[in-house]
């Protein structure tokens, strides 16, 4: 797993002969750090943005628990693009430009039926793009219309898991298969909450000083 390091570190730093151990752990350290500091770009085009970007970021649901609350207004400073809302044909080139302006490593979460497939506007619409994957590559899909903040967190945790397992980007520009982060059917709000709490505690996203 030393590939990333060889490419990213200065030329003067060489791999230790016969000892990939240092690089391996550095890799997972970097992945751990990346996964817990996903800075989202402030980008919402319609109703999903209210639920996913605003409600999820506000104090009740508190995106800050997952290290993803630092919403940046500039794509240069962001590494997570949450496509929250309908993308129309005139918006698509702008979305692509925003995506290309983000620095590697960059991740994309498509939330809501619109961003996944065109959603309620798929038929008889002259303007709606049928899924953002037609414009930019997607890492995690979060279904819903709109998804609850809990469902969005579920998708965010799926992305964090992907990054920690080195699944998403090892080499810049190379992407793994996108995943669908759908809440299992029949799940209750209490179950989601307790799962999120267990996740937070076990994966050491936050530390409890006890």
């Amino acid at each position: 797993m030393g590939i990333t390091m060889n490419q990213l570190l200065p030329k003067s730093l060489e791999a230790i002969p016969g000892g990939p151990a240092l690089l391996t752990s550095l890799d997972s350290l970097i992945n751990w750090a990346r996964s817990n500091s996903l800075w989202p770009l402030t980008f919402g085009t319609s109703c999903c943005a209210i639920e996913v970007m605003m409600a999820a970021g506000a104090s009740h649901h508190d995106l800050a628990r997952f290290g993803a609350e630092v919403a940046r207004p500039s794509p240069r400073q962001a590494d997570l693009l949450v496509v929250a809302g309908t993308i129309v044909k005139r918006m698509a080139p702008r979305l692509k430009v925003l995506y290309e302006q983000m620095a590697e490593p960059k991740y994309v979460i498509a939330t809501g039926a619109c961003a996944i497939s065109g959603g309620p506007f798929i038929y008889e619409s002259y303007a709606t793009v049928r899924g953002v994957h037609e414009v930019i590559p997607v890492d995690v899909y979060v279904p819903g219309c709109p998804p609850r903040p809990e469902a969005f967190f579920y998708g965010l945790l799926a992305l964090q898991r992907l990054i920690r397992e080195g699944e998403t980007i090892r080499k810049p520009g190379e992407r793994k298969k996108p995943v669908l982060a759908a809440l299992p059917p029949g799940i209750t709000l209490e179950q989601i909450r307790s799962e999120l709490i267990a996740n937070l505690e076990n994966k050491a996203v936050v530390n409890r000083y006890e």
Partner: peptide, 25 residues
């Protein structure tokens, strides 16, 4: 004002059709 200058037709008319639109199945 909203669509491209070279757009053909006026999409909010009920009989508007174009190649991009999908028919309701």
């Amino acid at each position: 004002i909203l669509l491209e200058d070279e757009w053909q037709g006026h999409p909010l008319l009920k009989d508007y059709k174009d190649d991009f639109m999908l028919e309701r199945p």
